[in-house]
Computed example of a mutant assay.
Amino acid sequence: MTDPALSDADPILVRMIRSVSELCGVIAALMILASVFITCQMIFVRLILKSSTFWQTEAVIYLVIAATLLGLCYVQRLRGHVGVDLVPGLMPAGARRILALFVLALTLLMAGVMIYYGFDTFHLAWSRNWKSESVWAFPLWIPYMTVPLGFALFFLQLSADLYMTVIGRDNPLAASMVPDVLPQKGDS
């Protein structure tokens, strides 16, 4: 199976992780939408009402960062992360599978490091009651929390992808996912 779509034949835990990733995609989209509305409100207040704004810019920044981090698992679910497919396209199927396992394991390691250090930063902000230096004085533990949370969700989706690749039911670098890079017979 190379299609990242839900399948009733997939293990329930994998389907649950994929569903959580889908939900995160919706939440991330709503955060982006909210940031657009806040930006429009900020423009209205500044240009039409000739008043100052004090929280909007910071809120938009935090929302976009949170949407990016919470959307990691959804993008992984759709196989939307940037990848170089020239080398896998030249490899035989078995080698593509080994490469996929290596890449997934390495990405899991990187996500684990981000969870660890992201949680450390979140915990410091929480325990020391850090606030932004703006007039709004927003508690920084809230945006900092999105780093370990986003990467933990990403870690879950990567784990599901790795499991499906190990059992041979999926391969992120399968031939159907890689464009043809060699000319076919009869092509001039």
Rank of each mutant, 00 (worst) to 15 (best):
M1R: 12
T2H: 12
T2N: 09
T2Y: 11
P4Q: 11
A5R: 13
A5D: 05
D8H: 14
A9I: 14
A9N: 11
A9L: 15
D10F: 13
P11N: 07
P11H: 11
I12Q: 11
L13H: 02
R18F: 12
S19Q: 12
V20S: 02
V20P: 00
S21F: 09
L23Y: 12
L23I: 10
G25A: 09
I27Y: 00
I27R: 04
A28P: 00
A28V: 03
A34Q: 03
A34W: 04
F37V: 05
F37Q: 02
F37R: 07
F37T: 02
I43W: 06
F44N: 02
V45Q: 03
V45L: 08
V45T: 06
L49Q: 10
L49H: 07
S51Q: 12
S52E: 10
W55C: 10
Q56W: 12
V60K: 04
I61F: 09
Y62F: 10
L63P: 00
V64Q: 05
I65C: 05
A66W: 05
A66V: 07
A66Q: 05
A67E: 01
T68Q: 02
L69T: 00
L70I: 07
L70V: 01
G71R: 08
L72F: 07
Y74N: 03
V75F: 06
V75R: 07
R77M: 12
G80D: 08
G80C: 12
G80L: 15
V82F: 11
G83H: 14
G83N: 12
G83A: 10
V84F: 15
D85P: 06
V87R: 10
V87F: 11
V87L: 13
L90F: 13
M91T: 08
A93Q: 14
A93V: 15
A95Y: 13
I98R: 10
L99N: 02
A100N: 03
L101T: 00
A105S: 02
L106A: 09
L108P: 00
L109V: 11
M110P: 05
G112Y: 07
V113Q: 03
V113T: 04
M114H: 06
Y117C: 04
G118N: 08
F119R: 14
F119E: 12
F119I: 14
D120L: 15
L124A: 13
L124K: 15
L124E: 13
W126K: 14
W126V: 14
S127W: 15
N129R: 12
W130Y: 15
K131G: 06
S132M: 14
S132W: 14
S132D: 11
S132I: 15
I142K: 02
P143C: 11
P143R: 12
T146L: 09
T146H: 07
V147E: 04
L149V: 11
F151G: 00
F151D: 01
A152I: 10
L153E: 01
Q157F: 06
L158K: 03
L158D: 01
L162C: 02
M164V: 03
V166W: 09
I167L: 08
I167A: 02
R169D: 01
R169P: 01
D170A: 05
D170C: 06
N171C: 03
N171G: 01
P172D: 06
P172W: 13
A175N: 11
V181I: 14
L182H: 02
L182P: 02
Q184T: 09
G186P: 00
